[in-house]
Every structure is written in C-alpha cells, then in structure tokens.
C-alpha cells in the first residue's frame, strides 16, 4: 500500500528546546490517522512541518510523495489544513471566504461556483453561507472552515483539533462528514483530545514531550495495556512517560 505520509526521525528545535524529537510514522492512503498527545506535546509543530508551514530541523519526510524540505509548494497544492483556531476572515461572508480560497488555489471560476454549491449541499452550509462568519456559532464556522480546506479536493486533510469547543451533536455530524471523506479516499490526519473521536481512527499515535511513545490500533492498544478503555490507556501511557522522563 502506498503511503500518504511518511516521516523518519523528524525533529524541530526552537533554540535548545526540542518541540518534536525524532518522530517516525507512516500513514496509509485513505486512512483516518489519530495524532494524539497532551497539550504541548508537539502535535501542532509536527503538523505545521507536514503542511509546509515550518521547516524541520532534521530528519526526513514526504507528504503525497513530495519531500517536506524541498517541495512544500507541491505539498500545499495537494493538502487541506484546518486548525483548531477559526481562521477564515471574520468580516467576510462564508461564500466570500470560499471564493477567495478557491481563487488562491486557482480553481477556474465556473468550477469553483459548482464546487461551492456542492460543498454547501454536502456540508449543509446553505443556511449561513452568505452571512459574515463573525456572527456564526463555532460549529457552523468549523463546517465553513472544513469546506474551505476541501475546495481543491485535497488528497490529505490535516485537522488540528477540528472539533474543539463544539457541542456533541455537532461533533457527531462532523465525524460523519469525515467518514464520508475517508470513504471517498481522502486521507485524514487528525489531532483530538476526545477519546471517543480517537476510537473512530484506524490507527493512533500518542505523543509526549516531542516523542511518539506508542502507535497502533486503538482497540489493540487498550488490550495491550490491559485498560478498560482508550481514555485510561492514554492517561496511563502519558503518566508512564511522565515518570520516565
């Protein structure tokens, strides 16, 4: 099977501090991969390196077969990124945001309008797409942000805590959308603090203090560590890492 993401001993230092410390992993095409870790574990730094926002200090990696050191422009064309922070323009309407992002991806105008209509249908945006995003509740904004990251039909979608601050009903809906995307062949690379969401992933990795301390199928990890559920597994792994470190 081809890999959507492979990284080997990827490291990023800020001064003397190793935010990401020699992490290695690979993600299969079409997989939903959960990228877990406590706050400050280095998840966001790792994702930013994969998205071409930050240069790694050392190590190697590819995204969609493109080298993360030298081919960040090619990577950007083939990935979508949606972050925990709502990062569309608040003074513009949803549609204006989408039209702008579409133009940046150089989607021809006719295709773009069609694509927006399509996403508006599948993500159920119709109700609020023409309102300034400032006035929208978080769940709606997140769906708009998702739409913006899907405009150019990316092969890999990086989601950095996409459901932070969203109510459970919205979260469920959001994950239904993500499942549909995965069925269509999109690779999903997701960070989350919600263990029920992590259980939706085919594989998860757990990061602690810049290192990946465990990687595998969520159910198998629960069995391996003999814990009642994923939540307890996560906590025991983190606290073990804490006492070792």
């Amino acid at each position: 099977m081809e890999h959507a993401v492979t990284i080997d001993k990827l490291t990023r230092k800020f001064g003397d501090f190793k935010a990401v410390d020699e992490i290695s992993l690979s993600v299969d095409k079409g997989e939903i991969f959960g990228f877990l870790g406590a706050n400050g574990a280095g998840k966001t730094t790792a994702i930013r390196m994969l998205c071409g926002l930050l240069l790694p200090t050392s190590g190697s990696g590819t995204v969609n077969g493109h080298n993360i050191f030298t081919e960040s422009e090619k990577i950007k064309q083939s990935i979508g990124y949606m972050s925990q922070k709502f990062s569309l323009y608040r003074d513009l309407t949803g549609r204006e945001n989408l039209l702008f992002y579409g133009s940046v991806y150089q989607i021809p105008n006719g295709d773009l309008k069609e694509r927006i209509a399509e996403l508006s249908e599948s993500l159920d945006l119709k109700e609020f797409i023409d309102r300034p995003t400032e006035s929208l509740p978080t769940g709606w904004r997140q769906r708009l942000a998702l739409a913006a990251s899907l405009l150019h039909r990316p092969q890999i979608l990086f989601l950095d805590e996409p459901t932070g601050g969203v109510d459970p009903v919205f979260r469920r809906k959001f994950w239904e959308i993500l499942y549909r995307l995965a069925d269509e062949g999109t690779t999903l690379f997701v960070t989350t603090h919600y263990m029920d969401e992590a259980e939706f992933c085919r594989r998860i990795s757990i990061m602690h203090r810049g290192k990946i301390i465990e990687i595998g199928n969520p159910q198998e990890l629960v069995k391996k560590y003999n814990q009642p559920d994923l939540q307890e597994t996560f906590i025991s792994l983190i606290s073990r890492g804490e006492s070792n470190g």
Partner: peptide, 14 residues
C-alpha cells in the same frame, strides 16, 4: 494574530 495568515500559507501561496 487571527491565524488567517497561517491558514492562507497552507494554500499554495508564498
């Protein structure tokens, strides 16, 4: 500050 710069830079623009 609002994070839109980072979002924008994940798109193919310099």
């Amino acid at each position: 500050e609002t994070g839109t710069m980072e979002q924008l830079l994940t798109a193919p623009v310099t």
